[in-house]
Design a protein around this nucleic acid. Sequence first.
DNA 1: ATATGCACCTGTGTGC
DNA 2: TGCACACAGGTGCATA
Length: 270
Amino acid sequence: MPELPEVETIRRSLLPHVIGARVTAVTVRERRLRRPIAANLEARLRGRRFVALERRGKYLLFGLDDRRALLVHLGMSGSLELAPLGRAFAAHDHVAITLDRARVLVFNDPRRFGLLRLGRTADFTELDNVGRDPLTAAPTPDEWRTLVRGRRLPIKNLVMDQRVLGGVGNIYANEMLFRAGIRPRRRAAGLHRPELERLSTAMRHVLEEAVDLGGSSISDYRDANGRPGFFQMRHAVYDRAGEPCRVCAAPIKRIVLSGRSSFYCPRCQR
DNA sequence: ATATGCACCTGTGTGC
DNA sequence: TGCACACAGGTGCATA
């Protein structure tokens, strides 16, 4: 479910509740996620204090006071909620981390594509595949020229490649290409300098605006305090097939690229 | 090396 | 109402 703006919103909403909090209890109700939750997670987490909370692409990294960290990925359908103490479990509540502040951090994930892992940050090999942060360290147009060189894949697929940019998923790839006026199917290597310049600024603007609005709530995304995001009201193309373009009124098209729905305006995007 | 297809899993919406 | 099917915010592995 969540892409960079949603994960960043969750991180910010968790921050004041989690930093400095101590874990008093850990309950794992379902270990079978994408990879099973390790058997020692409860013992390693109990009694620890959270000292940091960072985002790496779509991953959340909870720093602990023993130089280890809890790595969390929300997959397609994962969520984190700060629930009141003693609230009954709901369907797909897989992990509950009780804090010493009368709050429980609950990991819920219907599709179980998420990930929870405890260990040393350096051992989290999945983080090796997270590229630059498009919010804080976006490639310059010059760097884009290097990144697209020789790449024959559609630009949308390149932008969604987590090794290139950490955190861009299907919604925001579509939205930033609309904003840049580039069709998603265009070969990456075929983009001209002005297009790379537009892409580079469109990317920052779309993501910054989305973070400001708390991300996109399409069906049930909520931040850790249960608040929805509002960027879905600003979607120009995502999930708008057949609807009129907000700029030129042409009907939005839907195509499939690498199995993912891709949307664009045939007039605004070339 | 690069690009694509599919599997992983549950829930929801659509059409018959 | 029931049923089959397509599709969904992601990623990793197998295959060309």
